[in-house]
Amino acid sequence: MTLKIVASQCTSCSACEPECPNVAISEKNGTFVIDPKKCTECIGHFDVPQCAAVCPVDDTCVIDNAYPRYQPTA
């Protein structure tokens, strides 16, 4: 799995962008998006996904069930 940003709720405040340890977040058409190829759910970096922890709107940075669970490589 990876995280995704619910576009309709994103205030485009940019707080998440610099917090992402994988540089997976960028601005696209006025809101921010997470590149599923880069997102690691912050596993190995932090206890909780940083985008969700800093986001001012609840339930906006959420797990995207469309992708398989991220597997950290040893």
Binding site: T11, S12, A15, P18, P56
Partner: peptide
């Protein structure tokens, strides 16, 4: 400066 690092009960930037 759009980003914030705290949440206040009197603020809703949306």
């Amino acid at each position: 400066a759009p980003a914030c690092n705290i949440q206040c009960n009197y603020c809703n930037r949306k």
